[in-house]
Amino acid sequence: MKFITIDKKDWAKGIDKSRGTYQLFGPVTDINGCQIKALDADVQPEMEYTDSVLSAKSVLFPQSEKILVTSLNEADDDHHIMKRADGDYTPRAVIGIRPYDARAIQLVKMNFDTEDYRDPYWCDAYEATTFVGLAINKPGPLDFSTSTGTGPFSEDGLDILLADMDDKFLAKVLTPKGEAYAAACGFNTEADAKESQVLFDVMRKDAEKTISSSVETDKLKDKTILDLYEAPFWDDVAFSCINCGTCTYVCPTCWCFDIQDENKLKASSRFRNWDTCMSPLFTRHATGHNPRGEKTMRVRQRFMHKLKYFLDKYDSGIMCVGCGRCVKSCPVNIDIRQVCETMNNYEKKE
């Protein structure tokens, strides 16, 4: 672990230099606001953004990803045999990822990279990716990341953590991957480690202090699943919900997907697309039966999964990193903080 100082004057040049060996992702603003996207050769990551509308999860888990291909042309010898689609797993770096998004990727990893099963698409992309985080000096009013086990300066899941120091970035290089990327950029002005760590700590404390929002999760672990499941408040929580998938699509920790085959003429491709537990189709059986047929069941599922099932299964805290995106984007203002509080404080009446 070492610290590097990057003069902002050298920043763009260094980034451009890395393009030779890395495919870059980062924040850019378009007509609909800030998005984390693959950067075109002439586009620099915008390092002064508040937050992106969507999280950085799509760098590893695109909304629509071609996973298998096959030929339907019976003249081909291997027709109708599924083969893995060509994917680009050359090194890539995501510049300016927020620490809570990086933490979220670690949570998602628990799903895609397990002892029993390793998702090749996600894992190969993960292996190929260097995460260059940008610490949050001024957290927004909806940021409650400190109460979800992360924070504006969290290093979890990052290869480099950058802190914006006005005229320069102070970079904490956390992993060999990070080191390699810094080298590729030609960033090599090493800073004093001790001094730098002190600076980081001060900035972290300042940033954390401004966070006013938080959730209480301390009692969740001790609740009985069935009690929460049968709690009467779900109807009220769900009333206003319109069952759009917005909360799940903006969420950095939602990983559900759906598999679809698409045929175009003599070529068939199998895609996986983001799916959402908000959609009635999510659990509809081929018979037409739907175990989560009612809206309330779906809303309950989302919160129970994030705040209770995940907690119980992985013992790594709740499946929420406190980015606040769902609170902001929900068209009907269903606030996960309030729901979490309701669940946390719920006592079954005997």
Binding site: I31, Q35, Q63, I242, C244, G245, S279, P280, L281
Partner: peptide
Amino acid sequence: TQNCIRCYACRNACPLCYCPTCFVD
């Protein structure tokens, strides 16, 4: 429509979209 994520919030917020099964589903 370049940034559309097909969350269907527009459809679901729309009072006209009340079909039991939407054509996209």
